[in-house]
Computed example of a mutant assay.
Amino acid sequence: MQIDSPSITALRVAVRRAAHQVLDHPRIFDDPLALRVLGLDADAGHGRSWLDDTPLDRVLRTALALRSRHAEDTLQEARLRGIDQYVVLGAGLDTFACRHAAVGSDNLRVFEVDHPATQEWKRQRLHLAGIAVPEHCTFVPADFERQTLAEGLRLAGFDPARPAFFSWLGVVMYLTADAIDATLRTVAVLPAGSGIVFDYVIDPELMSPLARTALNGLAVRVAAAGEPLRSFFVPARLADHLRQLGFGRIKDLSPEALDARYFRNRADGLRAGRLAHFMTAWV
């Protein structure tokens, strides 16, 4: 991304998440603030570009809605384990903290970690939409390639002596191997019960020819936005690496597994994209 500018990718993600609220029924992911934070009006929006419904648009918005749904489902598992610290890495225009303002009453602290320019842009968007940042949400300005995540969280009031849950969506594929490992190590040394969920792009050698073509197209678009793809993984090797870092329980979900969990019996043909897996790792 550009150093002094908000992430273009974060904006595109937010727009597609908003389009999902209007175009897809039943929704995979329900976000009543998705349109407000962008200043969009569903009733006045039909025929506008943000509601394009090409096959590519359907695939992209479905993938983005799916990853938010899965992350929040997994967060609820963590909450049942008693975890009261939630860290959203690369938060962009994620609205979880604002949608769940009442969670402050049961002591859940939310830490949103992102580039300072993106966070300032988000504050502006929330202000214009009349959406308050709840007291239980703390913005943590950070650059995964240049700053220490643990130090940034500590300064923001995060307690490393208590377990925490992390979501890391749409970020890993843009980082170097060293930056990815630095973040994973930060989570791996937290108390037992801590966990992280993230999506990652599989090694192109494991993809079908059609999926590789789709990946090439995606790579061109994000590179043009200044955010090139950098990292790809073989699922079994990634799972082994996570165990070496200190994670004890690993769960990898393929597109087929995600289809079975979230898209069964849909009449509109929506399904998980074929480029990425979801990984959850618990300490």
Rank of each mutant, 00 (worst) to 15 (best):
T118G: 05
A219K: 05
L190Q: 03
A156N: 08
V201L: 12
R27F: 02
G130D: 02
A239D: 12
I28W: 01
L75A: 03
Y200S: 09
D106I: 15
Y174N: 02
A225P: 00
A117N: 08
R27H: 12
F158K: 00
Y200I: 11
A272C: 10
E77L: 10
G92A: 15
T280E: 09
R243Q: 15
E72M: 09
H127Q: 06
L155S: 12
A91N: 06
P160N: 08
A71G: 14
D159W: 10
L64C: 08
D73G: 15
P163E: 05
I180S: 00
V187P: 01
P141T: 11
L149K: 00
A182N: 13
I28N: 01
R61Q: 07
H277S: 06
F278K: 03
L155Q: 14
D84H: 14
L242M: 15
V283H: 14
D52K: 08
I131L: 02
L206V: 05
V189L: 04
L38F: 07
A223D: 11
A10W: 07
Q147Y: 10
A257Y: 04
G82A: 12
P209D: 08
L11C: 08
D199R: 05
A188V: 06
R266C: 02
Q119K: 13
G90Q: 01
H277N: 07
A71Y: 00
V103N: 14
P134R: 07
Y262S: 10
L206C: 13
R12W: 14
R58E: 04
A132E: 10
D52T: 09
D159H: 14
D252A: 15
R146L: 15
C137R: 11
G152C: 12
L206I: 08
L23Q: 06
A161C: 09
S208M: 06
S105K: 13
P141M: 12
L126Q: 01
F158T: 01
A179W: 02
R58N: 03
H25G: 08
G104Q: 04
G248H: 15
D240W: 12
A117Q: 09
D199Q: 11
W50Y: 05
G47W: 12
D41Y: 10
D52P: 07
V13G: 02
E112Q: 12
A239I: 05
V103C: 14
V110D: 04
V110G: 04
L80T: 13
L149G: 02
A34H: 00
A225Q: 06
P235A: 11
P235W: 05
A257L: 11
A214L: 14
A63W: 01
V113P: 01
G246F: 05
L35Q: 02
L11F: 14
R230Y: 09
L35G: 01
V110L: 07
R61K: 12
W50L: 01
F198Y: 11
F263C: 05
H136N: 05
V110K: 04
D41K: 10
A102F: 13
L60N: 04
E112W: 01
G226Y: 09
S5G: 10
R146F: 14
